[in-house]
Design a protein around this nucleic acid. Sequence first.
RNA 1: GGGCGGUUAGCUCAGUUGGUAGAGCACCGGCUUUACACGCCGGCUGUCACAGGUUCGAGUCCUGUACCGCCCACCA
Length: 867
Amino acid sequence: MPGSSSPLTHLDPTRLVLPEKPALEGLEAKWIPRWEADRVYQFDRTKTRDAVYAIDTPPPTVSGSLHVGHVFSYTHTDVIARFQRMKGKAVCYPMGWDDNGLPTERRVQNYYGVRCDPSLPYQPGFVPPAPGKQPISVSRPNFIELCAALTREDEKVFEALWKHLGLSVDWSMTYATIGTRAQRVSQLAFLRLLQRGDAYQVEAPTLWDVDFKTAVAQAELEDRELPGAYHRIRFARPDGGAVEIETTRPELIPACVALVAHPDDERYQPLFGREVITPLFGVKVPVKAHTLADPEKGSGIAMICTFGDITDVTWWRELSLDVRAVVQVDGTLRPVTWGEPGWTSMDADRAQRHYDELTRLSAAKARVKIVEQLRASGDLIGEPRPITHAVKFYEKGDRPLEIVTSRQWFIKTLAYRDALLSRGKALEWHPAYMQSRFENWTNGLNGDWCVSRQRFFGVPFPLWYPIDKDGRVRHEAPIVAEETRLPIDPSTDVPSGYTADQRGVPGGFAGDPDVMDTWATSSLTPQIVCGWPDDPDLFARTFPMDLRPQAHDIIRTWLFSTVLRAELEQHSLPWTDAAISGWVLDPDRKKMSKSKGNVVTPMALLEEHGSDGVRYWAASGRPGTDTAFDTNQMRVGRRLAIKLLNASKFALSNATPQGPVVYAVDRAMLHALAQLVDEATRDLEAYDYARVLQRTEEFFWRFCDDYLELVKGRRYGEQGAEAAGSANAALAAALSVLLRLFAPFLVFVTEEVWSWWREGSVHRAAWPTRAEIEALIADPQAAERDRQIFEWATTVLFEVRKHRSEAKQPLKVPIVSVSVTAEPVAREWMSVVEADLKSALRVQRFDVQDGEVRAFDVTGYDAPAPA
RNA sequence: GGGCGGUUAGCUCAGUUGGUAGAGCACCGGCUUUACACGCCGGCUGUCACAGGUUCGAGUCCUGUACCGCCCACCA
C-alpha cells in the first residue's frame, strides 16, 4: 500500500534534527573530513568491469597555479562521477599530478639554485644549499629528487583546493607523472614499442628550440605573427643574366642548396636542370621543379636552405638535395671553412670573408649583417619590403624555431593514421563536433612523433649505448634495460654485464642523455591508473576506461597521444567517452590566463561564494562551450543552496502524520517530478549536466513558489489529518528526490540536509527513479486530470496574486471574494483545490461561472484583521 | 586557404521530433507572509545577425552572406 510505509517518505520524528537557522557557512569544514573518515568516495576494486566507471582525470601541472579554469572543468567531471556513483557504479576517480617537464625544471633551477648535469654521479643525501649566485651542478637523480620535493608542497595546496571544491576523488589512487610507477610504465611502454619497431631513432632535421636547446614535436608548435621583410635577391646564371628570388631569411643564403619553382611555371621552365650561383658565397646550386612551389608567391621561385622551415625539409628530402647546415643548437651560425667538401665555392676566399662576419651571430643579427653585404655587392634588389607573417614557435619558447639535424627518438604515428581516424570515430565525443578537431589534426600530421628532449627533468630513456675501442658511441646498438629493473636512470644505473667504472670509457658504455617528451608519459595515464602491466586484475576491471575529461586545447596533444598509445599497446580505445570542456573567459571574452593578470584565486572564490555556489556556476557551462567568468552566477548558486536549506527545513518540520498521497495537486507534483527524473537521468547519461541542473533548478523554484504555498495551510491541519498526511508524504518524497537530483551539483548543502533526516551519505544514495515515485501515487490513472487541476491551481494563484499586487494590498488583508469565469470543467477543478487556494491566497470565497473567455475579478478586500 | 562553433531581452544564456518567443541577473512597483528580507508577489523588455528557399506555419530545416571566436595548414 502506498503511503507512509514507503522508504521514500520514511521519516523518523525522533531522529529528526532541524537547525534553528540553517546556513551554508562551515559546511565544507564539516563534511570534508567526514567523507574521508567514512571513505565515501573509495573505489571498490572488487567490482567487475561492467559495474565500474573509470575516469582518466587530467593531471594538473603542479608547478603552475590552479586557476578558475581548473575549477570549472574539474567540477564537470565531478558531477558525472557523482551521478555514476549514485547509479550504483564503483567509480574509479583518481587524481594525478603532472610534475614532469619543463615548467617544473625551470622552477627547481630558480628555487634551489641548481643546474642539472646528467654526466654527474648520484650523490646520496644531497642537501641543496641556500640559492646563491652560482648555480650548483647536480646529477639527474639528485635533480629529480629536488623536483619531487618541491612539487610535493605544490600538491598539498592543490589537494586542499580540490577537497574544498568537493571533488569526489579517491585520494588513495593519486599518482604523479614523475613518480616511480609512471616512470616504470613509461619506460616499459617505450621498450615494448622498440621491440615491435614502433619506436626508432634517426639523425634528421628536427624542429628545435634554440633557447631550451631541445627538439620539440609538431604538437607543441604554435604560430605567432611577427614583423618580417621580403628581400629580393639576385642569383647569377653562369650564362650571364640572373634570377631573382624573394626570401624572409637572407641569412640562410650560405645554407642554400637549390632553387625551386613550380613545374608548370613557364618563366622558370628553361632553368630546370641548370645551375645558378648564390650571391656572396658563389656556390653553384641546381634549379629544381616541385609542385609545392607557388607561382603566386614572391617571384615564383624559392630558395631552398637546409633548413629554413618545414617546407625546406620536404623539398630537401624529395629532391635529394645536399645538406649545408649553418644554424647550430644555440641558434647561432656555426663556423665554416669554405672550400672544404660540401662548401665548394667559385671564390672560397670571398665566401669566407663574407661568412666570417656572420659566424656566431644569432639568426636575427646575421640577417642584419648579410643585408649590408648584399646591398654592398649589389645583389639586393631594391629595399626589403616589410610584412607581417606567421612564424613557428615552441609554445613555451621565446624565439622562432630553427631546424637542426640531430639524433632523436621517434614513435611511429603516420603509419597508424587510418587506425587513429577510425578510433576517433568510435569514440563518443561530448559535444560531438569536437571529433572534427581530432580528425583535422590527425589528417594534418606531417611526421612521426619526436619524443626525445634534450632536457633533464623527465622520464629518461631506459637505454645505454656501447662505446667501441675508438671511443665512438654506438647509438645504432642500444643496450636495453631489463623490464624487471624499470624504472632506471641510465645516467646513474649501470647496464647488466658492465661495471660502473666502464661509464664513458672506450669499451664501456654511455647512458642515453635525453628524457622523454612529457606527453610520452602523460599519454599513458590510462595504463598508469589501471595498473598496466603489473596489476592485471585491476586492469581487467578498469580498462578501457569510461571517460576522458579534458579541455579542447589539448586534443592534439594529450587526447591524440593517448589514443595513439592505447592503439599501439592495447589495440583499443583507452576510453569510450571524451567530455571536452570549454575555457573560462573573462568579461572581455578573452581566455583567462595568468599572463593577462586576470586570474582570480580559486580558494578566495570558494570562500566568498561557497563551494556549492561556485560549482553551480561551473556546472552551468555546457560541454565544450567557453563560459564567461561570472561571480553573479555564483551568487545565484549560493542563493539556490540557501533556498534548499530553508525549503527543506519547512518540508521536514511538522512532517507527521504521513498518509497516502491522495490529493490531486500532490500527485501532480510527484508526476512532474518523475518526469524530471527521467529527463535528468537521460541527460546525465549523455553528459549534458548543465541541462540537468537548469531543469532541476527550474522545477525546484516552482515547487517552492507554487506547490509549497498551495499545501502550506493543509499541512497545518486546516483540512484534517488525512489531507495533511497526503501533503506530508508528498513533501518528504519530493525532498528526498530533489536532494538526490541536486547532490552531484550542490554537494555540501545536499549532504547537510540529507543528514537531518537520513542515514548515510546522500552521495552514496541511489539515484532516484520514476518507479519509486510512482509507487507512492494511489491513483496513477488520474495523472492527466491531476496535471490539469494543478495547472488550474497555479493559474488561479497567478491571477489573484496579480490583482493583489496591483491593488497593493498586503497578504494579511483577506480578499472577500474572487469571481472566476472559465470553461465548465473548471468548476470541477476548483472544487478539488478550492480549500488550498483559499488558504494560500487569503480568499474568503470563489464564485465560478461558465464563460468562453477566462476572467478573474477580485470583488473586494476585507478590513485588515485586528492586531 | 581548409575545418568547427557562435550570432535570441541592457547582460549571461535556455529553447531536443518545425506549431502563438523563455529563464536568471539588472531595472521599476508592492509586500515583515509562523521555511527563507541571502526572502516573497507583480511589472517592463525582443524585425530570434542578414538575404533567399522548403512549408498551412521556421528561432528551429536547406542555401548563401556578414561579423565574432577557436582549431588546422607546405604563407618562400
